[in-house]
């Protein structure tokens, strides 16, 4: 069943929740694909999440700085991409069909640091 949404209001900056109920970042940006025939409007094909996706939207010197610093820090190749097909439901938060771990949002380094401390619970529940 199709629904018309105002992408800016109802998609952008919404909380992403994975299939296990874990929080998986926010909708930092949207990927628009031009169907190419010049008649239709561009369609939203994926949700982008991650610091560099967000930085791209900030349109300020701070945003560009963030993008430069963050990319260097996390050494990744662009924002995590969630194709629209993996979206389960759109409500006050966006529910996904995948697990948060499948989204490469660059939290590996944080988990490695924190996981080293005693009592972090790293051994429990594969993530």
């Amino acid at each position: 069943m199709a629904r018309r949404l105002d992408a800016a209001l109802e998609l952008l900056d919404r909380q992403l929740v994975d299939k296990d109920g874990r929080l998986a970042g926010k909708v930092d940006d949207l990927e628009l694909t031009d169907p190419g025939d010049g008649l239709e409007q561009p369609r939203v094909t994926a949700i982008l999440t991650g610091p560099d996706a967000l930085a791209g939207r900030l349109h300020t010197r701070f945003g560009r700085w963030l993008q430069g610093v963050v990319l260097r820090l996390l050494a990744r190749q662009g924002p995590a991409r969630v194709p629209l097909e993996q979206v389960q439901a759109i409500g006050s938060s966006i529910e996904l069909r995948v697990a948060a771990g499948r989204l490469d949002t660059g939290q590996g380094w944080a988990r490695r640091l924190i996981g080293r401390l005693p009592g972090a619970g790293e051994g429990d529940a594969a993530q």
């Binding site: 929080l23 970042g25 610091p51 948060a100 640091l113 619970g121």
Partner: peptide, 20 residues
Amino acid sequence: YFGWQWGKFVKPAQAPRFQL
């Protein structure tokens, strides 16, 4: 703000950026 998993109700390893 960034939408990371947060809170003490999950084990620290599951909310690493919050704990950091």
